[in-house]
Amino acid sequence: MARALHIRFWLPLLLVAGTLLLAPLFRSSQPPLQSHMLALLLCATVALSGYLFAVICQPEKF
């Protein structure tokens, strides 16, 4: 259960899910590899933003 809640478990899962969901948005302008990579980049940027929100909310933990 503890492992299931761990960020190392959820983060890759969310990144993959987000990539698969967002990739069609870029498919019109880019081939499949690039569109998936752009989707992954967008998801990673959102994750980075989430990390920064976590720092803002709990700065003493970083």
């Binding site: 967008l42 940027t45 980075l48 933003s49 920064l52 929100f53 720092v55 803002i56 700065p59 003493e60 970083f62």
Partner: peptide, 26 residues
């Protein structure tokens, strides 16, 4: 060594600035 109150405040400021610029650039 743990973060001092001043360091915590500055960390929040820097994180907010970084967040703002990350959103702007994205």
């Amino acid at each position: 060594r743990s973060k001092t109150p001043n360091e915590i405040a500055l960390t929040v400021l820097l994180a907010v600035l970084t967040q703002v610029f990350l959103i702007a650039v994205a």
